[in-house]
Nucleic acid binder design. Structure first.
Lengths: 365, 365
DNA sequence: AAGATAGCTGATAGCGCTACCAAATAGCGG
DNA sequence: CCGCTATTTGGTAGCGCTATCAGCTATCTT
C-alpha cells in the first residue's frame, strides 16, 4: 500500500526516479548535479528514468539540503533601460527555471576603480556567481576582481570568446557580414561604415564582418569611407555629417548600432536627403529606438532575453560543477542566433549608377 | 555540549528563537506567519526574541515544508521599457527578500478579451498571486478574471484605492497640486493643462490636484486652458499646439506626463519660444525622457522600484494570511512619497504681467 | 596471490520549517 | 467546584534533497 505524501500533490521525487532506475536516491542526485564518479551505464539508466518520469528537482529542497542560498548577482552599468528590461526578463526566467535568486547591483561610473568596486560588492554579499551584461562584460577591472575572489562569471554579448571565461553572445562578425551583404544585394557599391566604441569587443567584430562581406563581393575596401563612432547618438551625428558631406557620398551607411544609425538619419534629413531613396542607413541591435524613428531602421536583432537566460543557466551549471569538485569548467562559449530585420531605412541603391554620390550632391548652402 | 550544525554556517533558526523565547518552534512559526490563535503576551515574547536574535526565516525551508512553490506573477503590457526596468528592479528585490520567485507574463493588446486572456494564463500556472503595474492596474477585465479565479492581486500606481483590492500608489492628487503650486509660486497666473488618458485613474487625480491648487490660490479655473491628451508623445503634440497657438497663450503648461511635456517643448521650440523664459513646461513621472530632452523637465518622481517592492511584500502577506485561514485581507492601500524634481523647464513667469500671453504674442506667420 | 589503490554506490542523518493532531490551559454556566 | 467547550501550545513526522562516510567492486602493485 502506497502512503501518499501528506502534502504537496504527489510530484515525482528523487525516490521515484531512484526506484525506477534501480539505484539509490544519492546516485540520482549525483547524476542530476554534475555527476562526479558515476559509471556511464548507471548514468544513462538514471537519465532515462528522469526523462521517462519527467522529473524536475525541487529547488527549495535542493537549496535547503545544500545549505546554500543559491543567489546569483547581476552587475549592471547604465545600459539603455530598454536593454536592461529585456535582459532582466530573460534572466528572471532563467533564475526561475534553475531555482535561484537574482541579486541586482548597479555599478556607477566608468573608471576602473569604480568598476572594481562594483564587483567587490558582490564578494561581500553571498552570491555564488555573477552575470555581466554589456558594457561590463568587457571590463577588465571587473573581471580581475571577480577572478581574484574566485567568483565564477558569465559575460554576455562580448565580441569574441575570452579564454577561460564563460560567455554568451551572437556572432557579431557574421551578423555584420550579413547586413553588409544585404546592402550589396540592394546594389550598393559605396558603403560608409560608422565604427563602434573601440574599447568594446563587439565593435571590432562588426568591422571584421563588414570587411569580410566587402572582400567576398570583390569590392575595394578603399572605396568605403569609414568614421569612428562611440555607440552614442552624439558620436553618430559627427560621423554621419562627415560621411554625408563628402563629395563622393556613399549610397548606404552601416552604423555599428541603432543610436548612431538614428543620428545619421537625422543628419540626412537635415541635409534634405530622403531615406532610403537617396541614402540607405542601417543599424545594429534592434533597440526600441529602431522603431521609434522614421523611417524605421533596418537592423540586427539580438535575442537579449534568451542570452540572459542562457547566461543564468550556464552560470549555475558552473557553480554546481565547482561545488562537486569538478574543477573549473572550460568556460563554455555559447553563440546564439541573430536575425536580420529589414525595415524601411534600407532600399535599392539610387539608379544614377557609377558615381551615385556625385550625381545628386546638394548645392553648397 | 552543542552540536554545531553540520553545514550552513550556523545561522539562527526557529529553534534558537523558540529556546530564547521559552516556547516551541511551532509557536514561533505561527507568530512569524500570520499568527492565528497566539496569546498576545506570547506573541510579544516571540517577537522580542526574533528582534534580539535578528532572526530571518529560511525561505527554502519554508517553501519546502509548506509544500508550495511560492511564485508570484507579474502581468505587464507595453509600458515604457524604462518603466518596466525600474519596476522589475524593485520587484526582484522584493521577491528576493520574501523568498519567492517572479513569473513574468506579457499581455498583448488593449482589448478586454486579450487582457482577460492574459490574466487567465496565470490561473493555469501555479502562481499564488499577481502584481499589476500600470496600465493593467486599472483594467477591469483583468481584475474580474483574477477575482473569479480567487487569485489575490495588488494594483500598482492606480489613481485611487479600489475597495477590497490591495494597491500601492503615490498621492497623484497631492503631487499634481504641489506641481501646480510650484508654477503659481513662480508667478504664473495662466496655466495650461494637458490631461492624461481618461481611462486611467491617475489622470483624474492629477486633474483634481491641479484644480485644487488653482482654487486654493484664489485663481479662476476658467482662465486655465485645458486640452485632452492620452499620455502619448503624439497626443502631446496636438494638445501643445492648441495651447501654444491660442491668442491668450498661457505662460506655463502642466502636462500630465513627461512624454506629453517633451512633445509640448518640441512644439514650443518650433514656434520659436524659449523654455522656460517664454513658457514654462512641466511633466509628471520622471521617466528617462525627462532628462534626455533639452531643457531637462521639471517633473514629479514616483518611487517606481519601491512601489514594486512594496507590492510584492504586500501580496505575499496576503497570500500567507489566506493560507492561515485569516480570510481576505482588507485590501491595504499603501501610499508612498513622491518628490517634486525641479529642473530647467520651469522658471519665473515672463515679466510682462497682467496679460502675459497677449503681451508678446508672436506675429501671425 | 595478498594487499593497496582508486572508482563507484548506498545507508544514514539531517537542512529549517510547517502540517497535523494531541495535550494543556483558560473560560464559563450550572 | 465540576464538567464542558474554546483557545492556545507542544510533540512528532516529515517536505525533497544532499553531505558524509562506510562499504563494495574493479584495477593495480609488489
Amino acid at each position: 500500500m502506497e502512503k501518499p505524501s501528506r502534502r504537496s500533490g504527489g510530484s515525482i521525487t528523487v525516490q521515484d526516479v531512484a526506484r525506477s532506475a534501480g539505484v539509490s536516491a544519492m546516485t540520482v542526485s549525483r547524476v542530476v548535479n554534475g555527476g562526479a564518479n558515476v559509471r556511464q551505464s548507471t548514468r544513462e539508466a538514471v537519465l532515462a528514468a528522469i526523462e521517462q518520469l519527467n522529473y524536475w528537482p525541487n529547488t527549495a529542497a535542493r537549496s535547503l539540503a545544500a545549505g546554500e542560498a543559491a543567489q546569483i548577482g547581476l552587475l549592471y552599468a547604465n545600459p539603455s533601460l530598454a536593454y536592461l528590461s529585456n535582459f532582466l526578463i530573460g534572466a528572471l526566467e532563467g533564475a526561475r527555471k534553475v531555482g535561484c535568486h537574482l541579486v541586482l547591483e548597479p555599478c556607477e561610473g566608468d573608471s576602473a576603480e569604480e568598476q572594481a568596486e562594483g564587483a567587490r560588492r558582490f564578494a561581500s554579499t553571498a552570491v555564488q556567481g555573477v552575470i555581466l551584461p554589456p558594457p561590463l562584460s568587457d571590463s577588465v577591472p571587473v573581471r580581475d576582481e571577480l577572478d581574484a575572489a574566485g567568483t565564477p562569471s558569465v559575460a554576455v554579448a562580448v565580441g569574441v570568446a575570452q579564454p577561460g571565461r564563460a560567455s554568451v553572445r551572437i556572432d557579431d562578425r557574421a551578423a555584420a557580414q550579413a547586413m553588409t551583404q544585404h546592402l550589396i544585394d540592394l546594389g550598393h557599391r559605396r558603403i560608409g561604415f560608422v565604427a563602434g566604441d573601440p574599447n568594446n569587443g563587439s565593435s571590432a567584430e562588426r568591422w571584421r564582418g563588414f570587411v569580410a562581406a566587402i572582400e567576398a563581393a570583390g569590392l575595394d575596401l578603399a572605396d568605403m569611407p569609414v568614421e569612428q563612432g562611440y555607440f552614442t547618438f552624439r558620436s553618430g551625428i559627427d560621423a554621419g555629417e562627415k560621411l554625408i558631406d563628402r563629395d563622393d557620398r556613399p549610397t548606404a551607411i552601416f552604423a555599428s548600432n541603432d543610436d548612431m544609425a538614428a543620428a545619421a538619419i537625422s543628419v540626412a534629413h537635415r541635409r534634405g536627403l530622403q531615406v532610403p531613396e537617396d541614402l540607405s542607413i542601417v543599424g545594429f541591435d534592434d533597440t526600441s529606438l529602431a522603431t521609434t524613428t522614421w523611417p524605421e531602421i533596418t537592423t540586427i536583432r539580438q535575442p537579449i532575453a534568451a542570452m540572459a537566460e542562457a547566461a543564468v543557466e550556464m552560470l549555475l551549471a558552473e557553480i554546481r560543477d565547482r561545488r562537486m569538485g569538478q574543477g573549473e569548467g572550460a568556460g563554455e562559449d555559447r553563440v546564439l542566433d541573430h536575425e536580420l530585420i529589414v525595415r524601411e531605412s534600407s532600399g535599392p541603391a539610387p539608379v544614377a549608377a557609377g558615381r551615385p554620390g556625385m550625381a545628386r550632391r546638394r548645392p553648397a548652402a
